[in-house]
Simulated scan of single mutants.
Amino acid sequence: MRHLIAAAATLCLAAPAFAQDDEGPFVDFQTLKPEVALEMAQAALQSCREAGYQVGVTVVNRFGQPQVFLSDRYAGVHSYETSRRKAWTAVSFRTSTTELAEATKAGTISSGIRDLTEALPLGGGLLVNAGDGSIVAGIGVSGAPSPELDDECAEDGIAAIEMQIAF
């Protein structure tokens, strides 16, 4: 039963799919170059460091595969798993993990998502969209004193590369 609830919730939370050009057997997609993913992760780490937080930052590609992980000197050992899962969750559900946390509270129709192994509906995971709105990556930050502060550092990371991806 939980699997059905999780599947239904996934369908409810996923962004609507729009009709695309069906000519040809291939699809085109974009993802960040590793150098750009690294630049974003470094900017997020620096943002948290300047605020006095020791964090881990993971950038995943649009398919949830890790591209970059950076850990500050005294970041908690949990920050690798947590930041990776936050980034993965953002791209998997096509929403920020803060929004997903709200949508999956106990008693909601989507609460079953919290039972999935990798999903982590806890603030600090954001989508990275190109200028045309397509998903090109996800970023997850873990280790600041609150999920909202993790979000702020992730936002600063995205802002650092915004002009490169706003085409």
Rank of each mutant, 00 (worst) to 15 (best):
Q65V: 11
A44N: 04
V27R: 14
G52I: 06
E162D: 07
S146F: 01
F29S: 13
A130E: 03
F29L: 13
G124Y: 03
L4E: 12
I161T: 03
A44T: 06
A154Y: 01
G52K: 06
I161H: 00
I158V: 11
E23K: 15
L116M: 11
S111G: 08
I161M: 02
G112D: 04
I135Y: 03
W88A: 09
F167E: 09
P16H: 15
L32Y: 01
L13A: 09
S111F: 08
A130R: 08
E23N: 15
S142E: 03
L126G: 03
P121M: 11
R2W: 02
E155T: 11
C153W: 00
C153H: 01
W88P: 01
A41R: 03
L100T: 04
G56E: 07
Q46R: 12
A6Q: 12
Q54A: 14
P145M: 10
D150W: 02
A160F: 00
R84S: 12
D151L: 02
A103N: 07
S47D: 08
L116Q: 10
T95S: 14
E102Q: 13
V55P: 03
H78F: 15
E39G: 05
T104E: 06
P145K: 11
C153Q: 01
F167P: 11
V128P: 00
S110R: 09
E81Q: 15
R94V: 08
S83H: 06
S111Q: 14
T104K: 05
I161P: 00
H78A: 14
L149Q: 10
E152I: 07
L127S: 04
K105I: 11
A19Q: 15
F26T: 15
A43W: 01
A17L: 15
A6V: 13
S110H: 09
T97N: 07
V68A: 07
V68R: 06
F93T: 12
L4H: 12
L13I: 14
L70N: 08
V27W: 09
I5G: 12
A166I: 07
G138R: 03
G107L: 07
E50T: 13
D156P: 00
A43D: 03
T97S: 09
I109S: 14
G76L: 12
F93S: 07
Y80D: 10
A137S: 06
F26C: 13
L4G: 12
R94D: 08
I158H: 00
F69Q: 09
D22I: 15
T95W: 00
P34E: 10
I139V: 13
Q67M: 15
V128Y: 00
F167D: 09
E152F: 00
D151K: 02
E152Y: 00
Q42I: 08
A41S: 07
K105V: 14
A6T: 11
A44P: 01
A159G: 01
H78P: 05
A15L: 14
T98C: 08
R62L: 06
G140S: 05
W88C: 05
T108L: 06
R49A: 13
G131K: 02
L120S: 08
P66A: 13
L127I: 07
R84L: 14
E35W: 00
A51D: 10
S110N: 15
A119V: 15
G157S: 05
Q46T: 13
V91A: 04
V68I: 15
M40E: 02
S110K: 09
V59C: 08
A43R: 02
Q46L: 11
